[in-house]
């Protein structure tokens, strides 16, 4: 059989030949880094509660603090190293969302502060807001109609 005869055969051949991602190692790193980031959030949460903030306000403070940490680490060129190591471990928590806003804003600074920073800031995070907000509106409308 000659793998270059058809694109189907070639696709299968390449799939077999290509090295796989080291999934066990990746998952282990993602697990403990992700768990750690959430735990840091939990510590901040406990501190807010201790200071007398309510549940909702404490959650918001947690988000803002983690976003700030992520922004600082991104600016210092450290976040991409954590991301390379942890993969989804730093992507999935709110830190990844913040990183996806900050990284293009730094990168596209050379195209100016309006169309560079201002517009490109949402290249990755824009879709998240579009789908997140749209989903919430749909859920709200459904609730309004049926409940």
């Amino acid at each position: 059989m000659n793998p270059t005869d058809t694109s189907k055969e070639y696709g299968e051949y390449v799939k077999k030949k290509a090295p796989n991602s080291p999934i066990l190692k990746d998952c282990f790193n993602a697990f403990w880094v992700g768990g750690l980031i959430c735990s840091i959030g939990q510590l901040i949460f406990f501190y807010c509660k201790f200071k007398g903030l309510d549940q909702t306000a404490s959650s918001t403070v947690v988000s803002i603090c983690l976003i700030l940490i992520s922004v600082i680490l991104t600016s210092l060129n450290i976040f991409n190293k954590i991301g390379k190591f942890a993969g989804a471990g730093s992507l999935i928590p709110i830190t990844g969302f913040a990183n996806s806003i900050v990284s293009p804003s730094i990168e596209y600074k050379s195209e100016g502060y309006v169309m560079g920073v201002g517009a490109k800031m949402f290249t990755v995070a824009g879709p998240v807001l579009v789908y997140g907000i749209s989903a919430s509106v749909i859920i709200g409308i459904i609730a309004c109609l049926f409940i």
Binding site: A18, P19, N20, S21, P22, D26, T74, N77, F79, N80, K81, I82, G83, K84, A86, G87, S90, L91, G96, N99, S100, V102, S103, P104, I106, E107, Y108, T123, V124
Partner: peptide, 13 residues
Amino acid sequence: RFPLELGNQRTPT
């Protein structure tokens, strides 16, 4: 691809 500061992983290929 992506901005340099984005914390993504490169695939083996």
